[in-house]
Simulated assay, not measured.
Amino acid sequence: MTTPDKIWFTRCPVPTAGGLAHRLGWLDGAFAASGLEVGVLQDAGPELARHHFDHDLLGLFREGGNVPALSARSAGAPTRLIGLTWIEEWQSILVRPGSGVAGAGDLRGARVALPGWAATRAQSFPRAMALHGAKGALAQGGLTLDDVTFTEVAVDPSPSVGRGARGRAPSWPGLEELARGEVDAVYAKGARAAEQARGLGLEVAVDLDAHPDPRTRVNNGTPRPITVHERLLDERPDLVVTFLAQALRAASWAAGDLGRVREILAGETGSGADGVATAYRRGFHRSLHPGLPADRLGLLAVQKDFLLVHGFLDADVDLDAWTAPEPLRLAQEQIAAEAGAEVAV
C-alpha cells in the first residue's frame, strides 16, 4: 500500500471549500492524525508547482479550474474526478464608457481580446476562458464567434498565488488594451478583475450571471472540479475521504459566516473587499459544497466538448470513466453520522 510523503493542495485565487478548509487549519489537523503534513503546492517552488497543470504528483488534491484538469486527463494524467462545485463569480463582458455597446447584440463586429497561447494547452486557460466567455455572451444576442474579430493580447505569466506572487496581483489580460482602445471588449471574471476594471473606469456591457441559462456561463470555473491522483484513490481511499469531509465541513461553516468568508477570499484572490463583494454575490457562500449531480456533470460535458473543438485538449475525455463518486458519498455519510451523533447526545 502506498502512502504519500506529504499531502499537497493547490491554491487558486477563487472560492473553494478546500481552500477554506486549508485557511481554517482543518486540513492540517485532519491529516496530522495520519502522520502527514499538508503543503501548498504553489509555495513549493517551480519543480513541484508545475504539477498544478500535469497533476503527476501522488499526494496532490487539486481544486481549481477545469481547463488544466481536463487537459491533464486528456493527455493521460492518472487522475479521478471526485467533486464539482458551481459558484457564480462575476463573469462579464467589459467595454469602454461611451462605446455604444450596451448589450450582447451590440458586439457584432467588435474587436474582442483573446490571450495568446501559453507553453502548454493546460497553461492556456486564460485563452480558453476568454473564448468561451465570449461565446456565452454572444449567444445571448443571437450572435456567434464568427460575428466578432479576435485580437491577441499578452498574458502575465506571474503566479496568481503562492510565494511567487509576491503580493502583486497580475492584470487581467486585455483590460489595459481595452482602456487604451486597442480592443473593444474583454471577457473578465472574479474579484481581482472586477476591482481592476473599476480602477480603469471600464463598464459592464454583458452581465453573464444575470442570464437564466447556466450554459451561457460554462467556463473554466463553472463547474470547478476536485481531482486526485488515481493511485492515491486506489491505495489510500481513506485519505481522499478525509479531504472531502473537511471540504464539506468548511462549506457548511461558510454558509453561516459570510463576513469571515469574504475576509478569507480577499486574501485568496488578491483583491479588496469591494472586489469580493462585486464578484461573489448574495448567497454564494451557501453554494460551496462539492457534489457530483447529473446537472453539474452535464455542464462539465459542455465545457469539455468546447475545449476539444477549439484545440485545448489532446483527446476526448470519458467523463463517466473519470468520475469516482464513492469517496464523496462516504464523506457525506461520515458527516451525516457525526451530525446524528450530536443530535442523539
Rank of each mutant, 00 (worst) to 15 (best):
L143I: 01
G136W: 00
E152L: 05
F53M: 14
D305S: 13
A69S: 15
V206N: 01
W8Y: 13
E89I: 08
R168E: 14
G19L: 07
L57G: 00
D28A: 09
A154G: 06
R73Y: 08
R50G: 13
S74V: 02
L20W: 09
L202Q: 03
P97S: 11
H22S: 14
Q303C: 07
F284R: 01
D56K: 13
T144P: 07
R23M: 13
L208Q: 03
R96Y: 08
A169Q: 11
A341W: 06
H52R: 10
P325W: 12
P4M: 05
G201I: 12
G45E: 15
V155N: 02
W8K: 02
A119I: 05
D146G: 07
D320C: 06
R121H: 10
A32G: 09
L292D: 04
G311A: 02
A165C: 08
V276D: 02
S124Y: 07
L232H: 01
F9N: 15
Y187V: 02
L70H: 05
A122P: 04
L20S: 06
W322H: 02
R260H: 10
T323K: 09
P13R: 04
G167K: 12
A32N: 09
A315R: 14
A191P: 03
D209H: 12
R50Q: 15
H229C: 00
P325Y: 08
G76R: 03
E268R: 12
Q303E: 15
L24T: 01
G105L: 07
V317K: 03
V240N: 04
D54N: 11
E263Y: 11
V241C: 00
H51F: 08
Q332T: 14
R23A: 06
Q91Y: 07
A247N: 04
V155L: 04
L313P: 13
H22C: 13
A72Y: 01
D305L: 10
D274H: 11
D209E: 14
L319H: 11
E342F: 10
K135F: 11
T2A: 15
L232T: 02
H310W: 10
R215D: 15
A49S: 14
R236C: 01
L239Q: 07
L300A: 00
D274L: 14
N219I: 07
V183L: 04
N220G: 09
R231Q: 12
E176K: 12
A321K: 12
G142M: 07
H285W: 08
I264D: 06
L143G: 02
G45Y: 12
D28F: 13
V345L: 14
L208S: 03
S287G: 10
W322F: 14
Y280Q: 13
A315H: 12
R73H: 11
